[in-house]
Amino acid sequence: MRRAVASAAIVIAAMGLGRLITDHLPTTETADKPFFHDGAVGSPVALDYADVTVTGVHVTPTIMGNPASAAGGRWLVVDLELKARHSPTSMAGFFLVDANDRRWIASSRGPECATAANLSTGVRHWASICFDVPKEALADARLMATRGAWDSHEAQFRRDDVARVDLGIAGSEVDALWAQKDAVNVKEAGPVPPEEAQR
């Protein structure tokens, strides 16, 4: 009898401990979290699979082309240089995070705007990512670059390396950037340097 009571007590205690662990330890969060690598414009960010460098940031209402692409808000165009480190790699996750931790995804509308990049090992690849965003997305915007595409569960880049690059847009600069009218010429993505690329 005593043994049965002791066994029951052990089972109940084990269940209680399990409940405590699942309720109070952020197991899912830690298991799912990507690994962020911070950087700034002009400095390469070394990920496990690629180097990511933001080489330019532009804000414009229009991307040149035939026809030109108009923004619903403004285009935030981020120029990138990418290089796969150890093996051919596809990167499809390019999105912005603003000062309020909101997400903004890249648009495929601009004629040469890239939403993904297929990288050959050791070969430099240039691409421009275009975001059609409202004004509130600009201040303190950071580019996130990773392999898995953004989705509402952010499930495609769990436990993967993510470059988080501060685009250097201060809140005080937003009005001036928003007022800019000059169109931006986005170059064709690929292994050809922008100064030699088409368009």
């Binding site: 026809p67 030109a68 692409s69 108009a70 619903g72 808000g73 909101r102 903004w104 995804i105 890249a106 648009s107 495929s108 509308r109 601009g110 975001f131 059609d132 965003v133 409202p134 509130e136 997305a137």
Partner: peptide, 18 residues
């Protein structure tokens, strides 16, 4: 299609009206 430039819309960010 966005009427202003005839490009196809596949992605939307919140707060913008097209």
């Amino acid at each position: 299609y966005f009427v202003e430039d005839a490009t196809q819309m596949r992605e939307f960010n919140p707060g913008l009206t097209y």
